[in-house]
Design a binder for these strands. Sequence first.
DNA 1: CTTTTATTCAATAAATTTATTGAACGTTAC
DNA 2: GTAACGTTCAATAAATTTATTGAATAAAAG
Lengths: 222, 222
Amino acid sequence: MDTREFKSSLYKQLAKVTKALSNPHRLEILDLLAQGSFSVEYIAENANMSVANASQHLQVLKKSGLVDTVRDGKYIFYELYDGRVLETWRALRQLGLSRNQEINELLEDYRQRKDQMNLMSSDELFQKLKNNEVYLVDVRPEEEYNLGHIKQAGSLPHKQLKERLQELPTDREIVAYCRGPLCLMADEAVALMRKEGLHATRLENGFADWLAEERPVEITDK
Amino acid sequence: MDTREFKSSLYKQLAKVTKALSNPHRLEILDLLAQGSFSVEYIAENANMSVANASQHLQVLKKSGLVDTVRDGKYIFYELYDGRVLETWRALRQLGLSRNQEINELLEDYRQRKDQMNLMSSDELFQKLKNNEVYLVDVRPEEEYNLGHIKQAGSLPHKQLKERLQELPTDREIVAYCRGPLCLMADEAVALMRKEGLHATRLENGFADWLAEERPVEITDK
DNA sequence: CTTTTATTCAATAAATTTATTGAACGTTAC
DNA sequence: GTAACGTTCAATAAATTTATTGAATAAAAG
């Protein structure tokens, strides 16, 4: 093998990792796995695809070394291989958000339609939590809240929001958060709360980012 | 458009960026553009592909927002869009090197075959340069040396090395560097120097990394 | 104005990636 | 043991990506 062939093989190997990142479904899966480890079934349901399809995508991610599996009883849990994968995913997402104008337009359109543009930064939330100025709700599915959540947050899955609106305070600012900047559960929740006359805002990023920023969380370790 | 469609569009848009990163040729181009801006012809030659093919790949990179173009006379120069692209590329490359065992095996095989396994870290080189303990040579093509190089480095393109061996000192350690950890020019140079009885070592990373680490360089600004 | 040179475009065939389907596998619960 | 359940496999058709070829543009040089 001459030098040129060596070089081609190197980039070909490297592309195995980037190819694994090149599919929208797999990106959505990674974004979900940033929250914790989940079964194939859960992933399929939450990233909106068939179980067989999710399984195939997960195997691509596994072969590329981005995720790993742990068997627990009859379930197989997939998780990010390590913190470096999470960091790279966050950098890529950030790059995408900064370089693809259409993403921002999509997000703005969505929020404008729901009449809520303003987002709260992590810094601001951190301060307001310290001064006990806000009521914080985690609107992700309960399973994810149980794996770990922002300290002082209560669980109120967005699917149950309508029936449990009366639990929310009417005299305080409510902050809702979900998985991350691309997750729309908190946007939907805020829209609904505002329609009910509540003072609600969404956190700009989500749980995985709060964790990566090393801010206070409550984690269930297994 | 309902929430699910919105979400799919978001990840689809994001995948436009990652798809641009999913091809080995385009990775090799990015790695080259980490050194500076170059014409299509130069890129085609140095990344070993036809001009038409390089042009097509470059357009994919441009549409995804990763690179930009500047026209100068009859040449069109391609360059990384900004520092964030460089940082993301470095993170991805690092992730690849850490997660793909075959890359490391390829590199080790290559170096073993050439009987030189030991690499010098940036830290060590920095110290040795300060104490004037090493003779530093940049073995990249002269064009790239002229765009910018490590301070105190002399230019000795690996293609001219054979004829200019007598310029090298026989009584000092020689350090050779090139574009980065995936670039093999410095490995070839070190192998040749050792065969001639010189005391030579390669820098682990390359110019773009030295620059990103904010170590002393000489840059030609235009 | 014509020629030269650098780059891009358009068309095509080959290769790769993808979603879907239904069967197969392996573990748990009974 | 057998049934139920979660996951993977294998086969296939549709969609996308890729390299190659030769023609088309656009700027510079003569």
